[in-house]
Design a protein around this nucleic acid. Structure first.
Length: 274
DNA sequence: AAAGCACCCTGTACGC
DNA sequence: TGCGTACAGGGTGCTT
């Protein structure tokens, strides 16, 4: 569930809470979440490591340690929680990392898709990610050039983390609506004007979503570290709004399936070709 | 290169 | 109310 804005919110809050803290142990309830590593080895390697800072790359959380890094991917249902060691542990918190001083970093993840890596160099996990959309290096010119080299549809291309890092289903749909581009348009057919609109739309949508601390679509959906919902859901134009009026032209929003993913668009603003 | 599918898991929403 | 089914904000691996 968490995309770039939600993970950015976690990273900022975790950095404030955990910078300077030391891990003292780990309990692993679902070993597959360690990507093959032995739980005992993981726990002993993590013990004694101090958190230098917490940041985000794409949809991944990066805990820079005094030696190496802990990288977390929350995938569909992951949510980090910082709690006192005495507080009741949610049955879905399969990964619990002990902190000196009586606190714990817990990973609540009902679907168990989340992954944790303890690596010497975070680039071993992050190395294939595409550009950061909120970084100045993500330019409209580069966007136009790279779109022109691809013949696939816009929707799966924007979901591809090697093309651009951090976008997921919500913010791809929102960006395509803002840019007035149909999700099934071929990337090399949008032209320079389309590429410039798409670049501006991605940056604008993500900036607003970060400022709003993410989108919470339903109960049981995204919550920040404290359990509070985001505020972006009220500003979404198309995602989850099938049948509701387009904010721009009032035509009913439509939901279709593109590349196996639910996709929301305005059939009037986003024509298959224009 | 691009597209389609199975798969990894469980909770929730919805139709009957 | 209970039950079956489809679907979910992510990603990988394989085949065509």
């Amino acid at each position: 569930m968490p995309e770039l804005p939600e993970v950015e919110t976690y990273a900022r809050d975790l950095d404030r809470l955990l910078r300077g803290c030391t891990f003292t142990g780990a309990r692993v309830g679902w070993p597959a979440q360690l990507a093959g590593e032995d739980p005992g080895t993981f726990a002993s390697r993590l013990s004694g490591r101090q958190v230098r800072g917490v940041s985000r790359r794409g949809k991944l959380l990066v805990f820079q340690l005094d030696d190496g890094a802990l990288v977390l991917h929350l995938r569909m249902s992951g949510r980090p929680i910082v709690a006192g060691a005495g507080e009741p542990v949610d049955p879905h918190a399969h990964l619990v990392l002990d902190l000196a001083g009586g606190r714990e970093l817990r990973l609540r993840d009902p679907r168990k898709f989340g992954r944790a890596w303890l690596v010497a160099d975070p680039e071993t996990v992050l190395g294939r990610l595409g550009p950061e959309p909120l970084d100045p290096a993500f330019t409209a010119d580069a966007m136009a050039r790279r779109l022109g080299a691809r013949r696939c549809r816009l929707k799966p291309l924007l979901l591809d983390q090697e093309f651009v890092a951090g976008l997921g289903n919500i913010y791809v749909d929102e960006s395509l609506w803002a840019a007035r581009l149909h999700p099934q348009r071929r990337a090399d057919e949008v032209g320079r004007p389309g590429a410039l609109r798409l670049h501006a739309a991605i940056v604008d949508v993500l900036r607003r979503a970060v400022a709003a601390r993410g989108s919470t679509l339903r109960d049981g959906g995204y919550r920040d570290l404290t359990g509070n919902p985001g505020e972006m859901q009220g500003s979404l134009a198309v995602y989850g709004r099938a049948g509701a009026p387009c904010p721009r032209c009032a035509a009913p929003i439509r939901r279709i399936v593109v590349a196996g993913r639910g996709t929301h668009l305005c059939p009037r603003c986003q024509r298959p070709r224009r």
